[in-house]
Amino acid sequence: MTNLSDKQNALMAQNSEYDLVVQVIEYLCQNQYDQPKLQDVAEYVGMTAGHVQKIFTKWAGVSPKDFQHYLTIHHARKMLDGSETILNASYDLGLSSPARLHDLFTKVEAMPPGIYKKGGEGLEIIYGYAATPFGRTIIMTTQLEGQPKSGVCGVGFVDESDKLALDDMQKRWPNARYIHDDNAITTDAETIFAPEKWAANKPMTIILIGSDFDVQIWRTLLKIPMGKAVSYGDIALHLGKKKGASRAVGSAVGRNPISFLVPCHRVLRASGELGGYHWGISRKRALIGWENRF
């Protein structure tokens, strides 16, 4: 049986691996026109080429050299191909496809808007921290009245400290009651980023807590298939918003509290530039590249 110290060491190692991945991705981006070799990357991060290759390939499923392709604006523009029809399309990727399973393994519920207007008053939110392929992560769950099971209402990333990550999430629903319990979110943490555990017949419930407009935008994000992207303008047009509504859409996308599961990272500028991301551009690059292996 794995003891607690072994598990803690494994979690620390996973966070350390993501830190290395970020360094590699940032170096590849900064030097993409020079087509850096593996040895160049290894010298930059201060490790052997073999170690970098092993850790990065374990994380990404491809080598740093192959991953470079996912970081180019050419690839971003390719992801946007047909973006004006993506939100209306029905994709038949096969139920065994990880990309398709990701779209099917979430069951979406929404809190009554009145609860959001009251700052989450009356809600009990359980939160905890876990190591994931994208660094230390804070996960929050709550329960809809009358429902037997709780659902995920928040997924955010820890960059500076646990406290700052918690403050960032709490300011969305300042009047809720928060309970810290790392064990309570373990199963969710182990499932969210593990394609082998995604199953359409065992959906993970996510609970959207926001204004009517925000929830409308977040539901639309769920229509973007893995490996594809849409622009802010595409979302506005899909929802029948007036020309020039892209900024309001962008603000709502930025307020998404459930990263990865509600894929706000799949929204790019029409030019193919990444645009913003609440948890940092490096992580947005990592998410997009990681998904493209599927």
Rank of each mutant, 00 (worst) to 15 (best):
I25M: 10
A131V: 04
V155H: 04
P36I: 07
H265V: 06
A13Y: 04
A229I: 00
F134V: 06
K284W: 13
S83F: 02
Q32I: 15
K171P: 05
H51E: 04
Q147I: 11
L144C: 03
Y33W: 01
S96K: 09
S211L: 01
D159C: 08
Q39K: 14
F260Q: 15
I179N: 01
I126S: 02
H180F: 06
G272R: 11
Y44P: 04
F134G: 06
C29A: 05
I258W: 00
A13K: 09
A60H: 03
T85G: 14
S16M: 09
P148A: 06
E26V: 09
P225K: 09
V253D: 00
Q39S: 13
L87N: 01
F67H: 07
R136P: 04
P203R: 08
Q35E: 12
T205I: 15
N9R: 14
L123G: 08
S271Y: 03
K118H: 12
A13T: 14
L93R: 01
M12G: 13
L221I: 00
T72S: 14
M79W: 01
I86P: 00
P148V: 04
A245S: 15
I206H: 08
S282P: 15
P133G: 08
F157Y: 11
V230P: 03
Q216L: 11
S63Q: 05
N31W: 04
D81E: 14
E26P: 01
Q32F: 12
A89N: 09
L20F: 03
A200F: 00
D6C: 05
G156R: 00
L287H: 02
E17V: 00
R100S: 14
V262R: 06
G280W: 15
R172A: 13
G82L: 00
V267P: 02
D167A: 13
L38C: 04
A13H: 12
I185Q: 02
I281K: 13
M111T: 09
N15E: 11
P98Q: 05
A252F: 02
T2I: 07
N292Y: 11
N9T: 11
